[in-house]
Amino acid sequence: MTNPRADRVKAVRALASRSVRRRTGTFLVEGPQAVREAVAPGSPRVHDVYVTVDAAARYPEIVAAARDVGARVRNGTPDVLDAMSADAQGVVAVVDQVGAGLDDVLTRRPRLVAVLAHVRDPGNAGTVLRAADAAGADAVVLTASSVDVHNPKTVRSTAGSLFHLPVVPGPELPDAVGALRSAGLTVLAAAGSGEHDLDDLLDVVGAAPAGVPDLSRPTAWVFGNEAWGLRDEDLALADATVRVPLRGRAESLNLATAATVCLYASGRAHR
């Protein structure tokens, strides 16, 4: 492929639009790290992989894996790949959208779930998903009011973790919390004004007194909007609210950092 203005190039670039993604049921995966994970066994169906000659020589394992999963591998000039995506780094893929049902996730008896409520920033959402993967979470839930997980910036921010664990898109927060609690998970809301200190909870893992959350139990963490956190009605849905201690003079932590700390605390407690 040599023409950056070709219809196929325009069709790939158009996947940056949510309406196009919704209509086609596919999304764009950009860059070698994310595409490498997309073509791994067990990932969603990969339709096409576009790669420059130089990138194909640099990442032969990606090309081989793409062919192994039945994807069409097409060579394009650097101008073509740049026209498809400014973040291509010589490799992009068109992949079926991901998405699991909450009921299906709960049948697997998850021990750690991250719930994103009203999270609108795609970079934050993707970073939390990546942190959840690293901390050993079993699933991530993005409520109806949160960003589309297939947003290109969200996908890039996951660095391939999007393909490692189930992602449940679209439930309303009360419905998600109710289902998680019914499945035996303790629902904890992360909030700067939380009634429990995270460090104190780590001190009593496995022996928490009555009324104090035990992080060794299966847990669903609820994280709120970047700017205003969780609303009062959202906090009221949780079994308890938890704050991350601030030892220095920082006014607060950003969403992704706070989520990472909370998820790793649960991951440690579960060990």
Rank of each mutant, 00 (worst) to 15 (best):
N3V: 10
R8H: 14
K10C: 09
R13L: 09
A16H: 13
S17I: 06
T26H: 13
F27V: 11
L28P: 02
V29K: 02
G31F: 11
R36W: 06
P41H: 10
P41E: 02
P41V: 07
P44V: 13
P44A: 14
R45V: 13
V49C: 02
V49D: 00
Y50N: 05
V53C: 10
A55Q: 04
A56H: 08
R58A: 15
Y59D: 14
Y59G: 09
R67L: 06
D68P: 09
M84E: 15
A86F: 10
Q89I: 09
G90E: 04
G90T: 07
G90D: 05
G90I: 09
V92E: 01
A93E: 01
G99R: 13
A100M: 10
D104M: 11
L106P: 07
T107A: 14
T107C: 10
P110A: 13
V113K: 03
V113G: 06
H118G: 05
V119M: 03
P122N: 04
N124Y: 08
G126V: 09
T127W: 01
L129H: 11
A134R: 05
A135K: 03
A137C: 11
A139V: 08
S145H: 15
S145M: 08
D148P: 03
H150G: 13
T154I: 10
V155I: 12
S157L: 11
S161W: 12
S161E: 05
F163W: 04
L165G: 03
P166F: 12
V167A: 02
P169W: 01
G178M: 04
G178V: 02
A179L: 10
A183R: 06
L185M: 12
L185A: 06
L188I: 02
A189L: 07
A189V: 03
S193N: 15
E195S: 15
H196V: 04
D197V: 15
L198F: 08
L198R: 04
A207M: 11
D214H: 01
W221P: 12
V222H: 05
F223K: 09
E226H: 14
W228Y: 14
W228T: 13
D232T: 12
L235P: 00
L246G: 11
A256L: 03
T257G: 05
V261Y: 06
C262T: 03
Y264T: 10
A265I: 03
G267V: 09
R271C: 09
